[in-house]
Design a protein around this nucleic acid. Structure first.
Length: 510
RNA sequence: GCGCCUGUAGCUCAUCCGGAUAGAGCGUCAGUUUGCGGAACUGGAGGUAAUAGGUUCAAGUCCUAUCAGGCGCACCA
């Protein structure tokens, strides 16, 4: 909605011949719904260059634009802010209109989780699983084409230690000091499947338990099985040099703070070299953008991978690399931080959390905070946190509506203009909230911030519960009944859509 | 030491490229109910947005410094 309104106003400004000196309208929702549906502070930004008071500029804008907008909105001015208040029917029409997102569709490869298959997923992996799957849904919702990928490090020292640990357990021998000591090692040893295969299927089932599925599972060993690695390194050759018998990539030429080793002096490859081959592979798969979600413990790794991706494209960037860094989840027990270590086996597994508080509550708990903020999970309070989890407030709103709609049966056949007569000012916050849903989706997608949808859903549920309290539907009649049914129907559809993106169920009863 | 992230109500968090009186949930206090599901609603108390400067018509938001917490600074993966 914001976009079409902005466009209409911008056109009207041009027609009126007003010079904005490059300033955009930049519509935003006023913090008080009574001010209007949208507002712009452009008068303040033009005050200096136009040498006029903001209030005066605002008046000029309003007089020039009001005629063009007359059928759908009223423009007004408070202390220089230009407020736009839509007519009730315009508001309803905008809510009902099929959302169109002004985005240029991109082909995106989104990589996340990418946990080593040397142990079960822990709560930290869970955060990336939830964030990644929500982001994929969100980007798809606004029109992008997204493939999701889980990269499996199934080669190298850690895997060797892991399989050796299982082998030792199988033989009844002591597990190597630097091996893996979790209880799951014995479980795998008791079975007959390959340890890595076993672990991967467990990852898959844990992820499925919160409704997360990947389009691709990319296994590192496939890079070693062909010439992928030497091919990729050959492409970097002009940016490499030999020093102390090791081969270095001159990543400082692309913004890194030091050069990086690709081939060690003993002739073996670094992890980075393999990762370059992996990204080289990605670059060949015809995507416009590569997005990687990494935990904050890997943020130091960003510059060198960005450098490599730039170098591989020889400065002609066709595929953009975006690395999203999420902060870590830490655990607290009895007020003391719990140190998780995969090797010692002192872990809180993601599956335990899901089984404990349920998939919906787990997803909401992990998604409703910005990925820039740390999550501290108090194990003793885990259950209480569940009871406090606002997801039930949202789901209850949806269930309430569904039960009601079921009782009503078929909705009456009326037009927007007919039901607009039943609008009252008290409904404005709810209707504005509904109208802002497409804006919210767009903003959240632009910022790669699906947590904004969780906040939005909470807000919408709150407005709905308030509306529901004072607007009986079943006992109302005529236009009023039709209007109320329409409103709650829109709430239901919007909640279902947003919860769908968050991967959380929208129950019809609870 | 250097780099990245964070610091907002008792607790957990929002606040959308700087905008109007900083908002929710939980907790707390006082109310609403024989209701279209009360897993709800209404109202109150609770804030120097870590601290100190700066930029701006306007700063929780941008810049600088300090303090506190998390994470990272390998020829590990």
């Amino acid at each position: 909605m914001r976009h079409t309104l902005e466009q209409a106003l911008t056109d009207a400004i041009q027609t009126a011949g007003i010079d904005c000196h490059g300033q955009a309208l930049d519509l935003h929702a006023p913090n008080q719904s009574s001010h209007g549906d949208y507002a712009t502070a452009i008068a303040f930004r033009l005050a200096k260059v136009m040498k006029q008071a903001p209030t005066q500029i605002a008046e000029t804008f309003i007089q020039a634009l009001q005629p063009a907008m007359a059928t759908q909105a009223t423009l007004s001015q408070i202390n220089g802010f230009i407020n736009i208040t839509l007519t009730p029917s315009a508001r309803l029409l905008h809510i009902e209109a099929k959302a169109e997102y002004p985005v240029t569709p991109r082909r995106i490869l989104l990589e996340f989780v990418s946990a080593n298959p040397t142990g079960p997923l822990h709560i930290g992996h869970g955060r990336w699983a939830v964030l990644g799957s929500c982001l994929a849904n969100l980007l798809r919702a606004v029109g992008h084409r997204v493939d999701t990928e889980n990269y499996i490090n199934d080669a190298g020292n850690q895997i060797a230690l892991f399989t050796a640990s299982v082998a030792a357990a199988k033989a009844g021998e002591a597990i190597p000091e630097d091996g893996y000591h979790g209880a799951y090692i014995q479980t795998i040893a008791n079975g007959n499947t390959d340890p890595v295969t076993h672990m991967l299927s467990q990852h898959e089932s844990d992820l499925a338990a919160i409704g997360t599925h990947f389009d691709h599972w990319f296994r590192e060993h496939t890079l070693h099985a062909n010439t992928a690695i030497p091919d990729a390194l050959a492409h970097l050759k002009t940016h490499c040099y030999t020093h102390d018998e090791a081969v270095w990539f001159k990543s400082t030429a692309f913004g890194d703070d030091k050069d990086r080793v690709l081939v060690k002096s003993d002739g073996s490859l670094t992890y980075f070299a393999v990762d370059i081959a992996y990204h080289w592979n990605k670059l060949h798969r015809d995507y416009d953008q590569l997005i990687n979600i990494w935990g904050a413990d890997h943020h130091g790794y960003v510059p060198r991978v960005s450098a490599a991706v730039q170098a591989l494209q020889n400065g002609h960037t066709q595929t953009e690399l975006t690395v999203l860094i999420g902060q870590l989840v830490s655990l607290v027990r009895d007020g003391e931080p719990v140190r998780m270590s995969k090797r010692s086996g002192d872990m809180i597994y993601f599956r335990d959390v899901i089984d404990d508080i349920g998939a919906d509550a787990t997803r909401f708990f992990l998604i409703h905070k910005s990925s820039d903020s740390h999550i501290e999970l108090d194990l003793d309070l885990a259950h209480q946190k569940t009871a406090e989890n606002p997801i039930f407030y949202i789901q209850y709103a949806h269930a309430r509506i569904c039960q009601l709609l079921q009782k009503v049966g078929d909705p009456p056949d009326v037009t927007i203009h007919q039901i607009a007569d039943a609008y009252t000012e008290a409904d404005r916050p709810l209707l504005q909230c509904l109208m802002h849903s497409t804006d919210t989706l767009l903003d959240a997608a632009d910022a790669y911030a699906p947590h904004q949808l969780a906040t939005y859903a909470l807000e919408l549920a709150r407005h709905f519960h308030r509306f529901y309290e004072t607007n009986p539907v079943l006992t109302s009649t005529g236009v009023q009944k039709a209007y109320r049914l329409w409103v709650i129907g829109q709430v239901q559809q919007t909640l279902q859509r947003v919860l769908g993106i968050l991967g959380i169920s929208a129950p019809t009863r609870m």
